[in-house]
Simulated scan of single mutants.
Amino acid sequence: MTFILTTALEKVARNNLPLPASEAITTALEHLRQGCFQRSLCLVVSATSVASGLEVGYEHYKGSYSNPVMYTPVALSGALAGAGLLGVFSRNAATGILRYVSIATLADGIIGFFFHVRGIARKPGGWSLPITNIVMGPPIFAPLLFGTSAYLGLMASYLRREEELGQTEDAPDDSMQSERPDWRTELRYGKFQKHLSAVTAAWAFFSGFEALYSHYKTNFRYKAQWTPVLLTPILMAAAIGAIKSRRIANTALPATSTLALANGGVGFFYHARGIVRRPGGVKKPIYNILYGPPIFAPLLFAACGFLGIMASLLRRETR
């Protein structure tokens, strides 16, 4: 019998938790399985876009906003946060405003990636000195990581509202293998485990690579700086394996994703502590946040863990 993570979690909750808590967990898992968590994901989008907007805002401030295009991710992160918040209260905002703002933000991340690659190429030596210029130039994958919130927003725009749980009038039938349902329908009903596993693998690579050269700049002064670098290939392997295997998606992927989520939280603490320990500490918050360790960067790695955990709780596509 195939091990199903959500079934196991429900059993543990029923056997070990008080009735109100077990019912709450069971209901939450059912909402995830059926794709009825649009409001919740909109709230996550709003919160994460604020964090990513602050991160890109002060990084571009250090670059003196030398190119007007550097203002676009700051403006779009605010727009995405607002659209996500509207999506919590309005279905029309979630399926309309949030969707289009998310698409615009994803496009901006791709354009930003091009500008960062060009910035590295324009440094002395260009790509003939790849390690030096990647380390000292603009963070190459940061614009793509900026798109994490936008991707979640786009996904949220196709989900169903929490109150729609149990409505199955156009749900894809698992028994029908001759015709593959439209991807929008499968997403709407929580059947996108393989897809989200692939996204988790890609985002883990981007985030792990950013952690590698960011910590390389400080010569890996602390042993803890190796942990996201070492966890990255493990998380990627689990996410790639989850595309092919339901068992891996329900065992290795949630385990490694939980580690990544916890590691990002610990990293956030270390980065915040590093800022406080700079000369002036909390008395010079703006200066020390600007020139200390990037305070929100570890949360981008934690976001990869969040994506992996979400993927492990979803259902698989029809094919």
Rank of each mutant, 00 (worst) to 15 (best):
I120G: 07
G112T: 11
Y100P: 03
A107C: 12
T105C: 05
F115I: 07
I103D: 06
G96D: 02
F114S: 15
F115V: 12
K123S: 08
R99V: 02
I103A: 12
F113Y: 08
G119V: 05
L106D: 01
Y100V: 02
R122M: 12
V117C: 09
F114I: 14
I111D: 14
G112K: 08
I97N: 01
A121L: 04
L98K: 05
A104W: 10
I111K: 11
P124Q: 12
K123G: 05
H116A: 12
D108M: 11
I111W: 12
S102N: 07
F115N: 13
T95P: 00
Y100F: 14
Y100G: 02
G112D: 13
F113K: 12
I103K: 02
D108Q: 12
K123R: 14
G112E: 13
L98C: 03
I97T: 13
I120P: 06
A104D: 06
V117W: 13
V117Q: 07
T95V: 00
I120A: 04
D108G: 11
I97G: 01
F115W: 13
R118F: 08
Y100M: 02
R118G: 01
F114M: 13
G112A: 11
A107P: 00
R99E: 03
R122N: 15
L106R: 00
K123E: 12
T95Y: 00
V101P: 05
R99K: 13
L98P: 07
R118P: 00
D108K: 01
L98T: 07
L98M: 04
I103C: 02
G96E: 04
I97K: 01
V117P: 03
T95K: 10
G96S: 02
I103M: 10
T105M: 06
F115K: 09
T105Q: 09
F113R: 12
A121E: 09
I103V: 15
G119K: 03
G119F: 04
S102G: 12
A121C: 03
D108Y: 04
H116E: 09
L106I: 15
T95A: 01
T105E: 10
A121F: 02
A121R: 01
R118W: 10
H116M: 09
G112W: 04
